[in-house]
Design a protein around this nucleic acid. Sequence first.
DNA 1: GGCTTGCGAAAGAAAAACTGATGGAAGGTT
DNA 2: AACCTTCCATCAGTTTTTCTTTCGCAAGCC
Lengths: 302, 302
Amino acid sequence: MERLPPLNAIRAFEVAARAGSFTLAAAELGVSSAAVSQQIRNLETWFGKQLFVRSGNRIVLTDAGHAIYPQTARALGDIAAIGRRMLDGSLRTRLVVSVPFSLAELWLAPRLAVLLDAFPQMAIDVRVEDDPVDLVRQNVDLRISYGDYHYPALRMVRLVHDEVLPVCAPELWQRHGNGDSGLAELHDSLFIHTNWGPNYATHPTWADWFAASGGNRSPDPSQGRRVGLSSLAVASARLGLGIALGQRVMARADLEAGRLIALSPVSVRLGHPYCAFMPPLKAERADVAGLVELLSKTAPST
Amino acid sequence: MERLPPLNAIRAFEVAARAGSFTLAAAELGVSSAAVSQQIRNLETWFGKQLFVRSGNRIVLTDAGHAIYPQTARALGDIAAIGRRMLDGSLRTRLVVSVPFSLAELWLAPRLAVLLDAFPQMAIDVRVEDDPVDLVRQNVDLRISYGDYHYPALRMVRLVHDEVLPVCAPELWQRHGNGDSGLAELHDSLFIHTNWGPNYATHPTWADWFAASGGNRSPDPSQGRRVGLSSLAVASARLGLGIALGQRVMARADLEAGRLIALSPVSVRLGHPYCAFMPPLKAERADVAGLVELLSKTAPST
DNA sequence: GGCTTGCGAAAGAAAAACTGATGGAAGGTT
DNA sequence: AACCTTCCATCAGTTTTTCTTTCGCAAGCC
């Protein structure tokens, strides 16, 4: 294979020639029109031939441009077809979703239930594991992560930027709650502290929550209960073991069912959103796209 | 046209698959093997599929890789064919060469004579003009320039890094030369000064030459003759009008014929080399490549 | 067991692509 | 005709991508 013309410039040419306008081509390519203009000029310089005649504010293909357009379109079409073939080959396979421990039970499971209710024949494989995950080698179609900074090469969709709020079991509050004085007076031992482990530094603490609600209390973790998983904090609160800073997406079902009560309207946002990552090509699979769509709606659960 | 896979990664894949080795592919592409490795990984990430199986120090195509290779080869071949077609279209045309004034007469002309001697039917069009030249719009196939910094988008070949040395007509030296004391004692009015005009600041002056030859004389330009073209300096010297700092490539024929004599073995290199520029595709035209080849040999002239 | 070869990872450097601002030419409008 | 709008060209500055360099590791090969 000899010297090849610049491929991205070829792509810009194909779109511009088809659109008949650099501006429209730029829109289709998702770049500025100046970028298209420069790419075309690159290609013209490479060939040593003009491809478009510029006359004021419009462009017309030259003979040379006309001559090569069909070939560019065909070649690029062939390459696009490669992608489609890659998809076809993996179409009959299971949909593999990978989630971190904390999201598996209280967040993903209920949502999958909705999905499987609608499409019972759908074959979904859920893997529970921490970042980083090698999507390619593990054949994972979709990875849910906390934070938008893992996997920069992958296509990313933000799902939900969650928040935490104080929750506990109704019985606990009846026993220890003291009227309207709120949480400020409660004993340190009633607080459940969530430890997200060494990998996640940005999780809101009780001190953060008190600061956000206008106070400055900082319950002593050594006095209270400590759990190593945010979903476990919610579960513990539901069991009456104390008052947790529960993530809204995890506590919602229990709150609606009355198994948990929110002790304050004040909430603190997490440092990062939850995000879905997938290989760009797989984003076009209907099942992957559908699942992402479902998950990005803050779909309630039962 | 939907989302396209990264084209340069496709190219890297095609070469790597054909070569069966990232290292060989890297050599063919003219990059490091790490670059190929990264491009392939990009593509695998895009598809969400492995294309090669790595086992220690060798690679084997996966089924997926095997499946798409022929298509990649065909699509890239098509694009390469576009280049060939562009060339064919312009094959019956003249060869257009553009040179700066200073090189036209004493440097390009004798060399073209050699070429036309061998290929009398060759249709060459010589244009004489200063930088910058718009090769595309003016339909120039080959531009010769002083300096390697014009036209960064074009393919460049360094032709010759010229030097200047003091030359004059033999009769002049007989009349004014003073034995072996060299140039140090000559009257200022005998020196010919070359003024390259506002665009070229790096031309060696008499002061530079004296510095290089161990002296520190600096003849007064207002006393001597001044010319605005380096080839004119040589021509003036040949006519006995004074002693010039002549460029070797321009003076060579006169020196060999005895019409000029070199007054010292000391020479000073020019600030930049002379370079040939051409649109990358046209570098593959046989006539263009041949002319560049001829010019880059420091071919003597008659 | 040493030696060589080839791929992978990571950090920094180099190159390419893109943006945003500005200016100009053509066509349409009042 | 003057004005406005659209669209492309150009430029400088920035961002993003790609590449190089260096190192490490795993296999084959004396």
